[in-house]
């Protein structure tokens, strides 16, 4: 059953939303949650791997964002700023959980298992050009299945959009180690997706549906 309808159209862009947040308008706060919380929660869940802990990261992120909104300089987008807070909170939680990030759970060099195994081409399929719920499920499961030392690197580089140096600084790795881990993570994700992406019956289904 849908919840109460909340009018958030008064803040239809982030600039207006920021003005509202600085006025401490409750509607602006609700709007910020509606606009950014889903992606913050999804990112937190990928980082920490536990729904309860991800909710903790979500709440801390928004509390910190609200408290710091007056000092936000607007240099990056509001969403980018909030997502960075969430990433920092998630990494802090991982560090607190086990004193340090489990970054040494993977070797720094390419392993035999990282060599390409699947050589089957993925058909060009319009249905696969968007991240529908099925493909999302496949990639989320593949990311969740990576060891933490690879998962964090691919999360920061390919989802959060940090560059190699920023990722290295966040994780306390050398830039070279980030590149090796990123390659290994992507190759593993490729292998994980291969069975789904190259599955011929999906093409038949797509053809039949046209």
């Amino acid at each position: 059953m849908p919840g109460p309808t909340i009018t958030i159209s008064v803040y239809d862009d982030d600039t207006q939303l920021l003005v509202g947040l600085r006025r401490h308008d409750p509607d602006a706060c609700t709007c910020m949650v509606k606009r950014f919380a889903p992606l913050v929660f999804a990112r937190a869940l990928r980082l920490v791997g536990d729904a309860d802990e991800a909710e903790g990261v979500l709440q801390t992120t928004f509390i910190k964002a609200c408290n710091a909104i007056d000092s936000f300089d607007g240099a990056s987008g509001l969403g980018t700023w909030i997502y960075r807070i969430a990433t920092n909170e998630g990494l802090m939680l991982l560090r607190a959980r086990r004193q340090s990030l489990a970054l040494d759970d993977v070797a720094e060099t390419l392993q035999p298992g990282d060599l390409p195994d699947s050589r089957v081409a993925w058909p060009e399929d319009p249905l696969r050009s968007t991240l529908d719920s099925e493909l999302r499920g496949q990639i989320e499961a593949a990311i969740a299945g990576l060891p933490e030392g690879l998962r964090l690197v691919v999360m920061l580089r390919d989802v959060e959009g940090l560059n190699t140096e920023e990722t290295a600084a966040q994780l306390g790795l050398s830039p070279g180690a980030v590149k090796v881990r990123l390659h290994r993570a992507r190759m593993r994700l490729r292998e994980s997706l291969a069975g789904y992406m190259a599955r011929p019956e999906e093409i038949d289904d797509a053809e039949a549906a046209r």
């Binding site: 999804a42 991240l131 999302r136 390919d158 989802v159």
Partner: peptide, 8 residues
């Protein structure tokens, strides 16, 4: 596909 997760 992984990139697309960032704003889907």
């Amino acid at each position: 596909i992984v990139h697309a997760l960032s704003d889907t």
